[in-house]
Computed example of a mutant assay.
Amino acid sequence: MEPHKCAGPSWYLPDQLPSTTVPYSALGIAHCLKGEPFSVHGWQEP
């Protein structure tokens, strides 16, 4: 419903994501591929 926000659905290999992938999504996929189910990316220590 918002074609200006999405080029369209496509399939990519998880280690070959397009450069337009949202950075935090790409990072989450990278952690998953390494078997790391948890990340604190973007959180600062108090």
Rank of each mutant, 00 (worst) to 15 (best):
E2C: 03
E2I: 03
E2V: 03
H4K: 10
H4N: 13
H4R: 08
K5T: 08
K5H: 07
C6Q: 07
A7L: 12
A7T: 08
G8T: 05
S10G: 02
W11E: 12
Y12M: 05
Y12E: 04
Y12F: 15
L13N: 04
L13F: 13
L13H: 10
P14E: 02
Q16I: 00
Q16M: 06
P18M: 07
P18S: 07
S19N: 11
S19L: 11
T21E: 04
T21W: 02
T21D: 04
Y24N: 11
S25L: 15
S25A: 14
S25R: 04
A26S: 12
L27I: 09
L27C: 05
G28P: 03
G28D: 11
G28A: 14
G28Y: 00
I29A: 02
I29Y: 00
H31I: 05
C32H: 03
C32S: 13
L33Y: 01
L33N: 01
K34H: 06
K34Y: 06
G35I: 12
G35Q: 08
G35M: 12
E36Q: 11
E36F: 04
F38A: 13
F38V: 15
S39F: 06
V40P: 02
H41I: 14
H41Y: 13
H41T: 15
H41W: 13
G42F: 10
W43T: 14
W43C: 12
Q44P: 02
Q44W: 08
E45A: 14
E45M: 12
P46A: 14
P46Q: 10
P46W: 02
